[in-house]
Amino acid sequence: MSDVRKMRVLIAKPGLDGHDRGAKFIARALRDHGFEVVYTGIRRTPEEIAAAAIQEDVAVVGLSSLSGAHLRLFPAVVEALRKADAADIRVIGGGVIPDEDIPILKDAGIKEILTPGTPVDQIIKAFEDACER
């Protein structure tokens, strides 16, 4: 019997941006580090992502956005989780995000922002840390 709990995370792409190469890369990297990764695919609404995260009982939701809509979409996922009484599920964001937006997103409850060029070990570490509650 396992005394270690399996790390379960969900990777999703909110909004209309259809470029999911980055999201899939992260999903594979997490799988290769022993995570169970639920992947929901592209063009999801914040409410759909929150509902999926709850049903799958994940510890962390990783969001990817390359379209520039992160300021609207990432906080909307945090809000949808809060509304569903699941504020304990943590949100990590990644993608093309200007430096000046990072403090705004963190204030809105995004735990970590990972921008292009972040070493994969650091990404894994961010998800591991977020799984520790």
Binding site: D32, H33, G34, V37, V38, E47, Q55
Partner: peptide, 20 residues
């Protein structure tokens, strides 16, 4: 995965219409 113990669970992609 027999190597890492991880998994990618992708069945939701085809069933998102029911997610709400």
């Amino acid at each position: 995965s027999p190597l890492s113990g991880g998994a990618i669970l992708g069945d939701r992609i085809r069933m998102m219409e029911h997610s709400l």
